[in-house]
Design a protein around this nucleic acid. Structure first.
Length: 225
DNA sequence: CCAGACGTTGTT
DNA sequence: GTCTGG
DNA sequence: CCAGACGTTGTT
DNA sequence: GTCTGG
């Protein structure tokens, strides 16, 4: 899973961290990024290009209207087999910058938890993107976040987690010279628990209409782990 | 060779 | 795009 | 991912 | 329940 996340860092900081040019990009602090919204994605190979893409991949072969539910996640275990993802894996990979993501606990009344790096630093989800020409002829760029099995930190919360790439793997993921599916899939591992932290947050995050600093304040119970 | 088809994850 | 069917 | 909507005819 | 919207 991974169906909601935050990106609070300033665009200048993100540009330095991920190596893109922030020229005409605006990125207000976002505490509650939801599916179907435009999200910041970085694609690259030599020069890295950042742009906004619809979260929910629309495969280029889509005919009339995007699928429902939207393809917001792609399972790492099957990404080489799915027609909608296979070509994107080989040729259209991206980084999706974030600084936290939310999961709803399978137990504990499905209350939301926010997961971040222990350092608090921004990180990147492994993503795929595609282009679709809509019925009116407009080009829609869209992306999806790859998921894998949960690490030890996430396991009590949920059995899946988004793939977060170690910083030194990011250049490989964006290198279009690599077109070996098995090699690429081998990069898609659960991120080490030791470097992450999780804490319960307010159910305000449940509604995608809410977006503000109060969403990342610890709930009554505070830190989980 | 050309024509035609081609949807995913995660929920319990 | 890429695979399958004819 | 979760939240929220989910209706029709005829009348003025 | 099921679909749409964010």
């Amino acid at each position: 899973m991974c169906g909601r996340y935050s990106l609070i860092a300033e665009i200048g900081q993100l540009a330095l961290r991920f190596g893109f040019d922030a020229y005409d990009l605006e990125q207000p602090p976002r505490y509650n990024i939801a599916p179907t919204q435009p999200v910041l994605a970085v694609r690259g190979d030599g020069c890295r290009l950042a742009s906004y893409m619809r979260w929910g991949l629309v495969p280029s072969a889509t005919r009339e209207t995007p699928s429902d539910p939207p393809l917001i996640n792609a399972r790492a275990e099957t990404v080489t087999e799915r027609p909608s993802f296979r070509s994107a894996l080989l040729r259209r990979r991206c980084l999706i910058p974030a600084d936290g993501f939310y999961e709803w606990q399978r137990d504990s009344g499905r209350r939301p938890v926010r997961i971040t790096m222990a350092s608090g630093e921004p990180f990147a989800f492994a993503g795929l993107w595609d282009m679709w020409r809509d019925p009116r002829g407009h080009i829609v760029e869209s992306c999806t976040i790859i998921t894998t099995e949960a690490n030890e930190l996430l396991q009590p919360i949920h059995d899946r987690m988004p793939v977060i790439l170690p910083e030194d793997v990011e250049p490989l993921w964006l290198d279009n010279g690599i077109q070996d599916g098995a090699a690429l899939v081998s990069l898609l591992a659960p991120y080490p628990s030791e470097a992450m932290t999780a804490y319960e947050v307010s159910t305000l995050v449940n509604s995608a209409a809410n977006d503000g600093p109060e969403l990342i304040m610890p709930a009554q119970q505070g830190r989980l782990m």
